[in-house]
Design a protein around this nucleic acid. Structure first.
Lengths: 389, 389
DNA sequence: CATAATTGTTCACTTTATTAACTTATTGTT
DNA sequence: AACAATAAGTTAATAAAGTGAACAATTATG
């Protein structure tokens, strides 16, 4: 049996013909085990050292040692004694100290406004900030991003663990935005730029990927989840076995331009009947704006949203069959996605994939409101810097 | 940056609400590094200890130590001196000794015949065997499988590393065949049964998954690949970032019963227009058998195969967009899949997903002939026992 | 022929986790 | 109240893993 293990290491090089061979040192094993202690405590748990030892399989001695280090760093604190009805010395309860560090999280997915927040280790938003860029693109958008991050860092009254950024566009493993049309970004080394300006660890990923990570860390905590992020376009983030899927050329999740109707309307990409021409926010608003508000229009509205859901399900159903997700989550404006649309997706996916030997996959809208991408950006930092997810 | 690392460990428990926390010991790190040496040598490479040290980042001292152990186990052998034009002591060339062990590989995907082979460490088939079961199902099929494995073990003139089995049906992580209709298997603990009978390590997976693994290990060696296995049904195996995707309930890859045409013919599963009603081997043969062989029928044949490819692409295109595979491979009877069918899949996937910012994904038929599943079964053993892939 | 370069090994050392034993603290029983 | 049983957390000795420094062996080059 082999088990996946995440070990923080130096940045990987390019993938050439030969597969990369990455050594593991005892010190990497220790970093992993230290993360394990944090992971055990992460879901607001209060556990004793002995509890953690049982959960991880490490000995009490080792756990004590690891907890000692984490306590010195301020990340873990003792809460007091565990009251119990059983004989034996009562354990000392431990928990993560959510105020030990803050994270800077940026959501760049809106076209007009860049949103940012200071977030504590438990995912609570401590303060918010935003800059209006009014459609600014290119270098201007980069400096606006840096300034927003700097303002948030200035507000922090605690050590900043790092900066997480969720941005539209394709992002590679080194945090380079390969292609983001609404920002006119082509191969912009966003991670490097922000890291140089702030002298902090910076992590960048696609906004849909961030949304997926948020669901994995703060939402249903599913290990294998598909998040469909409906905004200007339609993007997907895939978490499979607890890991984000980047794809061969960092283009995973780009489902907005799958053609699902050969005689559909012409899309900006040059193809016909792309998913985005049916189910993106602009496409939906345009259709709904034509309605007047009369009684008959109510069922018209339902028909439009159901139709969009049906179109989305043509893309989602094959994914469900092929990957067997724990759940499917829709994120974006809930006034559009909730109700008829999500119901239609659920029903149509069920119709296309139902089987006597597999339960229907749950399909729901996000519970994280408008902060999905922001929380995902925060979770990136937690995962990257502390190995917690 | 975090890097995936495979570490052999004891069998995982059930996935309950809480995530599993798996410790890593220095000894696991060593097992991993030892596998790294084998991985470096696996693609028929002849390398010196110093070469391996450079490739892995381990020191020459450590590599020497690991090579020493592997040599003692007979897995690695010295070939002689490396001739070079540069100054310095010439290195001692090492290679894997493909004859150090044999593997037993079984392909149970045919309905009439169970096929098996002895395979060496380089994937060469040393001898074959088969049993005709004539549609036998249930316990009879299990004992036939065990007998075939035993016959092959009896022929082996070297230590047997393990037994790999590719079988139709859904298979869970413990090698239990949850559901295989053509064998009438429901929750059959195939791995356990064979392991008890042979007292050898046994690894079981779905036939499409095995095919995917074969492409990953012996075919294009892509890290992220979709293999569509067309046989009695249509199944898919997904390798993502070098790891097989099992899915939430071991049902990943079950794409045969995605409905792609609402008014299609009724499928055995109860839905209409399932992919299998168009593109499985029986469905294709049935359509082709109606042709007489006259000139007009030649273009009819092309139309039938192209149509089947177009249907398949409706399922594959969303997967390509969502996961950004290195390549797509079709496996199964090449007289059906080659030519018009694969061309149609390639073209239709391209039509539905093409983008200015992503190259078209290569779509091809397997190079591994009829042995895809067999070689995948062998690769499972290599991966599971030696950490080589 | 001397020098530089390269391979592979030996040795002393650091890091990591383990087992065994011990201290401390609590419950339950006589 | 005394004592046994149980459990948590710590201390100390030990085993395993990889490293750097130094060295011997071997080759090309000027």
């Amino acid at each position: 049996m082999s088990t996946d293990v995440t070990v923080a290491q130096s940045a990987p090089g390019p993938r050439t013909g030969r597969r990369r061979l990455v050594k593991v040192l005892p010190e990497d094993a220790r970093r992993h085990n230290k993360s394990l202690v944090l992971q055990a405590l992460f879901p607001e748990a209060e556990l004793s050292r002995a509890d953690i030892a049982r959960m991880t399989g490490l000995t009490r001695v080792t756990v004590s040692d690891l907890v000692g280090e984490l306590a010195e760093e301020g990340l873990v604190r003792e809460l007091g004694q565990k009251e119990s009805k059983r004989p034996g010395k009562p354990g000392t309860l431990l928990s993560i100290n959510p105020y030990a560090r803050v994270l800077v999280a940026l959501d760049l997915s809106d076209s007009e406004t860049l949103n940012g927040a200071l977030v504590d280790l438990s995912g609570r938003v401590l303060s918010r900030d935003a800059v209006t860029i009014g459609g600014a693109v290119g270098e201007t958008a980069v400096t606006a991003t840096i300034e927003l991050a700097q303002k948030l860092v200035a507000v922090a009254d605690r050590p900043v663990l790092g900066v997480g950024i969720g941005t539209p566009g394709m992002v590679d493993a080194d945090g380079v935005v390969l292609h983001a049309p609404n920002r006119s970004w082509e191969s912009v080394p966003l991670r490097e730029r922000v890291a140089e300006a702030l002298e902090l660890p910076v992590l960048v990923s696609n906004d849909a990927d961030a949304a997926a990570r948020a669901e994995h860390s703060y939402g249903g905590r599913a290990e294998t989840v598909l998040v469909v992020h409906v905004a200007l376009g339609v993007g997907a983030g895939l978490f499979i076995n607890g890991k984000l899927v980047h794809g061969h050329r960092s283009a995973a999740g780009e489902i907005g331009h799958v053609s699902i109707q050969d005689d559909g309307v012409l899309c900006a990409c040059g193809k016909r009947g792309c998913l985005e021409t049916f189910t993106s926010v602009p496409a939906l608003r345009a259709q709904l704006d034509e309605l007047t508000g009369e009684p008959t229009d109510l069922s018209q509205r339902a028909a439009i949203l159901s139709g969009a859901g049906e179109k989305l399900s043509r893309v989602v159903a094959p994914l469900v069959a092929a990957i067997d997700f724990d759940e499917i989550v829709l994120s974006g404006p809930l006034d559009l996605l909730g109700g008829d649309l999500v119901d239609s997706v659920r029903e149509n996916v069920r119709m296309r994939t139902r089987s006597a030997f597999r339960n229907d996959v749950p399909v729901r809208t996000t519970d994280l409101g408008e902060d999905t991408v922001l929380l995902g950006a925060a979770a990136m930092v937690l995962s990257g810097q502390l190995g917690v997810s």
